[in-house]
Write a protein that binds this DNA or RNA. Structure first.
Length: 411
DNA sequence: TTTTGAGTTGTTCGA
DNA sequence: GTCGAACAACTCAAA
């Protein structure tokens, strides 16, 4: 049923229309949604309605995920060990046997009335890549269990292969519950007795736990959506660079792996996790552009855009968050490409200008002999850009910028 | 209470 | 080609 308007008013009216005595719902864990839901609940209770909420969105309640000092965790591994590794989350409850329908069925707006669809249809690539809804989510999980899980431990890092679960948008929109995923993965790994399945399941469940960790951080440190968790990063010498930001957004940095990822994102609303790290690291460390600008772009373009995950991911990359990447960990986009997309298949798919460049140079076309580029029908600076910045120089500059936080090293 | 060891995802350099 | 060291500072939890 679709309604529009102030949540508390719309729900209170609906409750009246169907003479409901109680309202059941699942809890949300984003600060704004928590505030809204609290307001709705107090409205309903004032009308004498029973309000009961449940937790389906997470494996554990962020409010309860505390260390022995009663403080929230700031490091993932202790969080994992103390909260999830030895404590299996509950199995999901089955659906209700019967839900009596109200008579008559209340009025509903047509979905189009919400005017959610963009005026310019930029979503064709997204429609082609995803099947939204609970059925699509279950199909995706079944595919992952059959085709991804056994290879997941190593294969998840390969953007040219398909061993990741691709469940993130379904999780974000509540189309599948993390507990359902957890137990399906666990069950499959136990049944098989196959070493790859067991290792894959372990690695994957850890990833699910990262989502929990992200929500725990978001609930306990809500300001981190905009500001660094580590306050010393207020001193970091970020650089505003509109042109470089635009080149990154459009996949025209001249680094093939970064550009492939950014174009995959623009087209499908999703980017492989390994490539997210490389692309994000490039924005923050090579270009020194504030992580918030990258977070905003991901927020606008990802179909799985999730406040908790996005915040954790960007702060981790920038080094200013919980359990952050060490400042000296600066991805080399060429090396990452050669290691995780060895044949260049991923790059060629999303950066077709490079299709004819031999494998050896597909991740670093500027190093290719002129003849090889000519044969490939490509001119740097024309069909495909020169690197926007030199890797070695950028690395030195980033290290110097991070030293700025300590104020010891001189450039 | 204090100490100690470990901590998602890397790169470069020199031996 | 491989391998280990170095590249901080800080949090957490077990000893």
């Amino acid at each position: 049923m679709v309604r529009r308007g102030d949540s508390a008013e719309a729900l209170t009216r609906l409750v009246g229309e169907v003479s409901a005595k109680a309202v059941y719902s699942n809890r949300c864990h984003e600060p704004a949604a928590m505030a809204r839901d609290a307001e709705v609940a107090s409205h309903l209770r004032a009308e004498g309605i029973t309000v009961r909420t449940f937790d389906a969105a997470l494996l554990l309640e962020p409010e309860k995920a505390l260390n022995k000092q009663g403080a929230p965790f700031r490091v993932f591994t202790p969080f994992w060990r103390s909260c999830l590794e030895r404590h299996e989350p509950k199995e999901p409850a089955g659906g209700p046997a019967r839900i009596p329908a109200p008579k008559p069925w209340p009025a509903s707006l047509p979905l189009d009335a919400l005017e959610l669809a963009p005026k310019v249809d930029w979503a064709a690539g997204i429609r082609a890549a995803w099947r939204p809804g609970a059925q699509g989510a279950r199909a995706q999980l079944a595919r992952f269990l059959d085709e991804g899980l056994a290879q997941y431990a190593q294969g998840r890092d390969r953007p040219d292969l398909a061993f990741t679960s691709r469940l993130s948008p379904h999780l974000h929109f509540g189309e599948i519950a993390p507990r359902a995923i957890w137990h399906a993965v666990r069950e499959r790994s136990l049944l098989g007795g196959d070493a790859g399945l067991v290792r894959g399941a372990e690695a994957y469940l850890r990833q699910l736990a990262w989502r929990e960790f992200a929500y725990s951080l978001l609930v306990h440190f809500p300001h981190t959506t905009d500001a660094p968790l580590r306050p010393d990063f207020a001193r970091f010498p970020w650089q505003e660079d509109e042109a470089a930001l635009r080149a990154w957004q459009r996949g025209r940095t001249g680094y093939p792996l970064v550009d492939a990822g950014m174009r995959e994102l623009w087209t499908t609303g999703w980017m492989h996790n390994r490539v997210r790290m490389v692309a994000a690291s490039f924005l923050v460390k090579h270009l020194l552009i504030p992580w918030q600008a990258g977070a905003r772009w991901f927020w606008d373009t990802l179909v799985d855009a999730d406040l908790a995950n996005n915040t954790l991911g960007w702060q981790w990359t920038a080094g200013c968050g919980a359990d952050a990447a060490p400042y000296f960990r600066i991805f080399n986009p060429v090396r990452q490409g050669q290691r995780f997309d060895p044949s260049g298949r991923y790059v060629r798919r999303w950066v077709p200008e490079l299709a004819g460049v031999p494998d050896k140079w597909v991740h670093c076309p500027w190093q290719a002999p002129a003849a090889a580029l000519k044969d490939a029908g490509i001119r740097l600076g024309q069909e495909y850009p020169h690197p926007i910045i030199d890797h070695t120089e950028a690395r030195e500059r980033a290290l110097a910028a991070y030293d700025h936080l300590k104020g010891t090293r001189t450039v």
